[in-house]
Design a protein around this nucleic acid. Structure first.
Length: 493
RNA sequence: GCCCCGGUCGUCUAGCGGCCUAGGACACCGCCCUCUCAAGGCGGAGAUCACGGGUUCGAAACCCGUCCGGGGUACCA
């Protein structure tokens, strides 16, 4: 039998890392087993969904590289895949349940329910729905209907017995029916609720496995009961432990970086994020940490997923991102870096041929120095354009006594260079360094400040070579004038 | 309150009764390399396996209890 899994988000903007991890595990399960990945959009709550949120979900999944075999924009045998377009289906199912006496209208108002809930709590009883509308007589029911009283539709849960299911990650779970009250299937406004739409679709779409967050585990017995009522095959369930913030609290907006969009904008590589997410709750049998998607697919076993919650560690993700950046071929890294350089205006949009070759030259210089794509610009800005000297850096390294002489002599040496290339520049500056008896660090750091504007940057000989003789000498001149004014101040031996 | 699920270095985890004086990765510390910053190499520190009982010749692993954390208890998903 072909394995069929689904990712079923309620679209509410750029997806959350927890949802991304759920999507990933479903996708991995499908790919590892040669199954089918379905994307189903659970947008039945009209008040919370919008077209942009829907688009954002698709964009995020595509960016992560998690494609779907059936779903929006690709279609499939069970289309449509947006629940908002399947309302007739749910309506028909509810009619069937009503007819069979498995569901019933409930006329209790939210206020009444709230009141009874409080009373039950106070009396130390279970606060759930007491099932009173189930016991309504036909006369009462028709009377209420005739009065036009609004109602919801509830599913009638058997009073006796219990429901047990095997959870792929957590083991067997048993819940007594006494713990499950008659839950609402259809709202007053006629719209279906999660606990109706999800199992109906899972059944119709022939899902074999339902892999989702642990927060949904309590709703599983309800859904299984509904599956029985509908005569569906019961899918297998697997509930993934939740992802927590660094402080161990549930991941929320309060932790800032929760949406996939944020990671994209801050220069994270999708393959790094996917690799990191895969390791939250799962680990490969061979114990490796950096493993390409193909390896994750090859090794992924749902049985190897742990049941304890994991904290999201931005530092580790960032390290991993650096590893992925370093492993990229130069031309690929160039392609990924481009939008980040365009974004801060270091090159035009689109970049000119000259800018493009300059970027290409710069790539190997930044490769081992960045952990996120958005960090490159600061390291190489001085190569693309003149950057004002950072006052703090100037104070720190330009203040020393030997600096004016160093700058003076070096400028002269550079001016006299026959060919302006990296090795020539290095030879010239090392010459001055030896003559003056300076340590390499002392002799070269001032140039980072003077030429690149900061004491941190891409290697200075390479940078100078790329900037060009004219501009380098000009910047050195400016620095001498600004920081060491006055005739002879920078002079002699 | 009631129900469900968890609990191994700061963090992610390995461990599926003897291979554990508990292994790896991130972070941290030291040394080496070095034109800044990195990257890289080598080394170090870091865990009474939540706690208490059992089962067993033997327990991080199995069972029970306690505690702690999370989830659910919606006309959200």
């Amino acid at each position: 039998m072909t394995i069929r899994v689904r990712f079923a988000p309620a679209p509410s903007g750029s997806i959350h890392v927890g949802n991304a991890r759920t999507a990933l595990f479903n996708w991995l399960y499908a790919r590892h087993n040669g199954g089918v990945m379905v994307l189903r959009v659970e947008d039945t709550d009209r008040s919370r969904v919008s077209e942009e949120s829907f688009r954002a979900v698709l964009d995020d999944l595509r960016w992560l590289g998690l494609n779907w075999d059936e779903g929006p924009e690709v279609g499939g045998p069970y289309a449509p895949y947006r629940q908002s377009e399947r309302l007739d289906i749910y309506r028909a199912v509810v009619d069937r349940l009503l007819l069979a006496g498995l569901a019933y209208p409930c006329f209790c108002t939210p206020e009444e329910l709230e009141e009874r809930r409080k009373a039950a709590m106070a009396a130390g009883r279970r606060p759930g729905y007491d099932g009173r509308c189930y016991r309504l007589t036909d006369v009462e029911r028709t009377k209420f209907e005739a009065e036009g009283r609004p109602y919801v539709i509830r599913f009638h849960v058997p009073e006796e017995g219990s429901t047990t299911f095997r959870d792929l990650v957590t083991g067997h779970v048993t819940v007594d029916h006494a713990q499950i009250d008659d839950f609402v299937l259809v709202r007053k406004d006629g719209f279906p609720l999660y606990n109706l739409a999800a199992p109906v679709d899972d059944g119709m779409m022939h899902m074999t496995h339902v892999i989702r967050g642990l927060d949904l585990q309590p709703s599983t017995p309800r859904q299984i009961l509904l599956h029985y009522a509908l005569g569906n095959e019961i899918p297998e369930y697997g509930h993934l432990p939740l992802i927590l913030g660094a402080d161990g609290q549930p991941l929320s907006k309060r932790h800032g970086e929760v949406s996939i969009g944020w990671y994209r904008e801050h220069g994270f590589l999708p393959e790094a994020l996917v690799n990191y997410l895969a390791l939250l709750g799962w680990s490969p049998r061979d114990g490796s940490v950096i493993l390409p998607l193909s390896q994750i697919v090859a090794q992924f076993q749902i049985e190897d997923v742990g049941a304890s919650p994991a904290r999201f560690d931005l530092e580790k993700l960032t390290w991993m991102n650096g590893e992925y950046i370093r492993s990229l071929p130069d031309d690929e890294l160039l392609r990924r870096l481009e939008p980040f350089l365009v974004r801060v205006g270091l090159v035009s949009d689109p970049p000119s041929a000259a800018e493009r070759s300059l970027m290409a030259a710069v790539v190997p210089l930044v490769k081992t120095r960045i952990e996120r794509l958005d960090q490159a610009a600061a390291l190489v800005a001085g190569i693309f354009r003149e950057v004002p000297v950072d006052p703090a850096a100037a104070e720190k390294v330009l203040g020393e006594e030997y600096v004016p002489e160093l700058l003076e002599r070096s400028a002269a040496a550079l001016e006299g260079l026959e060919a302006w290339d990296r090795d020539g520049i290095e030879a010239a500056l090392r010459g001055v360094q030896t003559e003056m008896g300076l340590k390499p660090r002392k002799a070269f750091v001032p140039f980072y400040v003077a030429v690149l504007g900061s004491n941190v940057g891409a290697p200075i000989f390479d940078s100078m070579a790329l900037i060009g003789r004219e501009k380098v000498l000009d910047r050195l001149r400016q620095v001498r004038e600004k920081f060491f004014p006055g005739p002879g101040a920078a002079g002699g031996t």
